[in-house]
């Protein structure tokens, strides 16, 4: 239906405007142009620019030398393993916690209160969570104090300025994200399917294993990917809560240091590209395995 473009009366055959409109190009379609241009300029172009720049090393030399340097310097290449060592366990833990909790919360009447509390760390952001945890998990903080009062430990646990500080911050900001995504997938499944399975003799575990899990798999794969890439690009909390020169020197730190402390934009871009490739590799691997599962509407099928 043509709202904005009125085709003028023509004598012979359709005008160019009519032919374009028939393909879906008319004045309304043009409304997409500003946003598309904007996206090309500020998203596609920088990516392409960074990609090319990463092959033009700052100090001259051969085109691959940035990448050669990255993979020969343990201080640089070890950041991949360090980041994965944080991101994968945290993401898996978040997902494993999110699934059973989402199944419970689905039955809850006042879901909104809980989801509002859970959305707090996401809206407050990583910097504030890092700042809060510094004190809360510190040797004099309430967390250690409570454990000592309960007699569970005799010495304060060292929970900040190391791996566990970053782990805790990724849990606090990552879990709500993972959980809310999982919840939206779980509530998307028609409860009648579970009832049908029950009348057919399936126990609670069988209902989960044979009905819910296969229907949830595609959603869980996407949730894993989105949660993983967030965790993999961890930055402020790795600096503030971790040991940015040691075990929590994550790949973001290496990239930011190269670009904005050493002013080696070419190296910075190369590390950002490597970061993107690792994320992409994991996402592709997970989504490819998704092809093994059923994909389609998760409700009782209708015509």
């Amino acid at each position: 239906m043509d709202v904005l473009a009125h085709a003028p009366a023509v004598e012979q055959g359709p005008s160019l405007r009519q032919r374009l409109a028939a393909k879906g190009f008319d004045a309304v379609t043009l409304l997409v142009v500003p946003a598309a241009v904007f996206s090309l300029l500020l998203f596609v172009y920088p990516f392409a620019f960074g990609f090319v720049l990463s092959f033009e090393p700052k100090g001259g030399g051969e085109w691959l030398s940035n990448y050669r340097r990255f993979f020969s310097d343990p201080f640089l290449y070890e950041t991949i393993a360090k980041t994965l060592w944080l991101a994968i366990p945290v993401t898996l833990l978040n997902l494993l916690l999110a699934i059973p909790i989402a199944f419970r919360v689905r039955l809850m009447r006042h879901q909104r209160l809980l989801t509002t509390i859970l959305v707090l760390p996401i809206t407050l952001g990583t910097v504030l969570v890092a700042e809060g945890l510094l004190n809360y998990l510190g040797p004099q903080g309430w967390f250690n104090r409570t454990l000592m009062t309960l007699g569970l430990i005799s010495q304060p646990l060292k929970l900040v300025h190391n791996y566990w500080g970053v782990f805790a911050s990724l849990l606090i900001t990552g879990f709500p994200f993972t959980f809310l995504l999982t919840l939206s997938y779980v509530t998307g499944i028609d409860p009648a399917l579970e009832q049908a399975a029950a009348t057919l003799g399936a126990s609670a575990w069988q209902r989960f294993r044979h009905v819910y899990l296969p229907l949830l798999m595609p959603g869980l794969a996407i949730t894993f990917c989105l949660s993983f890439v967030q965790a993999f690009s961890v930055f402020p909390s790795a600096v503030l809560l971790g040991e940015p020169a040691g075990p929590t020197r994550v790949i973001s730190i290496a990239a930011a240091q190269a670009a904005f402390e050493e002013y080696d934009y070419s190296m910075g871009a190369a590390i950002a590209m490597i970061m993107g490739v690792v994320q992409l590799a994991i996402v592709v691997a997970v989504l490819a395995s998704r092809g093994l599962f059923y994909r389609g509407p998760a409700s009782g099928a209708k015509g």
């Binding site: 996206s39 990516f47 620019f49 890439v229 967030q230 871009a269 950002a272």
Partner: peptide, 26 residues
């Protein structure tokens, strides 16, 4: 086009932020 608009939401800002900042500095 929709994919193009989807990508900045899927890719963490740190990944595309560094090349973007480089361009803005230049």
């Amino acid at each position: 086009l929709v994919l193009l608009f989807l990508l900045p939401l899927m890719i963490p800002s740190m990944t595309f932020g560094i090349p973007l900042a480089t361009v803005l500095y230049q």
